[in-house]
């Protein structure tokens, strides 16, 4: 799973740097992902496993770099007129669910739940943008596929852990949000499978 999200980050960085352009990438989605990583990894200084620590740092720093590329270095290639999804709704959705059903009423747990819910919908500005343009460069489609499968692959992992480690190891919030996120992606996955995998251009019907 970890390698999927790293793959998605490297594909995106490769796309931006190689093509000297961030066209087709939603700045709003990228900002939401930064917020997701920051609110989820607030425990960074106390992370026990060095493996997790390294990945948390990698995720936050690479996301900051992506934002820097989009906001500074390749700003002229970023078209805000196509990126018009109202993110207030997504922030509100994540905030309300985080406040209503946290694992515990502590700041850290509410922030964690917020980040999980926000991640599940953070791709919507990107998918909305895709819908407006109707097509995407192959590399953008690969990026979205890697990002989407990251969370989708957690689902078989959770099922496996449910049977090997028992129900107490399963996080209800993470599972529900992970399934929601995968459902939001399902349309995209289908077009990716029927078009891009067969070498055609990613184009909406």
């Amino acid at each position: 799973n970890i390698f999927r999200v790293l793959a998605s980050i490297f594909i995106l960085l490769h796309k931006i740097v190689q093509l000297k352009s961030c066209s087709g990438i939603s700045f709003k989605s990228q900002m939401l992902y930064l917020l997701v990583y920051i609110t989820r990894y607030l425990d960074l200084p106390w992370t026990r496993s060095s493996y997790n620590f390294i990945f948390k740092v990698l995720f936050i720093s690479s996301q900051c770099y992506i934002i820097y590329l989009m906001a500074r270095a390749y700003k002229p290639t970023n078209d805000p007129n196509l990126d018009t999804f109202r993110v207030e709704f997504l922030l509100g959705f994540a905030f309300i669910l985080a406040i209503l059903f946290p694992v515990q009423y502590t700041f850290l747990e509410i922030a964690w739940a917020f980040s999980i819910w926000l991640e599940s919908v953070a791709i919507l500005p990107q998918l909305f943008m895709l819908q407006r343009t109707g097509e995407a460069e192959a590399i953008t489609a690969h990026y979205l596929f890697a990002l989407g499968t990251y969370r989708a692959l957690y689902i078989p992992n959770w099922i496996y852990r449910y049977y090997t480690e028992g129900p107490r190891k399963v996080d209800t919030i993470a599972v529900v949000a992970g399934v929601l996120q995968t459902l939001l992606y399902s349309d995209f996955f289908w077009i990716y499978y029927t078009k891009v995998v067969r070498g055609e251009k990613f184009k909406l019907p």
Partner: peptide, 10 residues
């Protein structure tokens, strides 16, 4: 359910 600093998922 594991607390934030005990979670092994990222």
């Amino acid at each position: 359910e594991a607390k934030v600093d005990e979670k092994d998922e990222l």
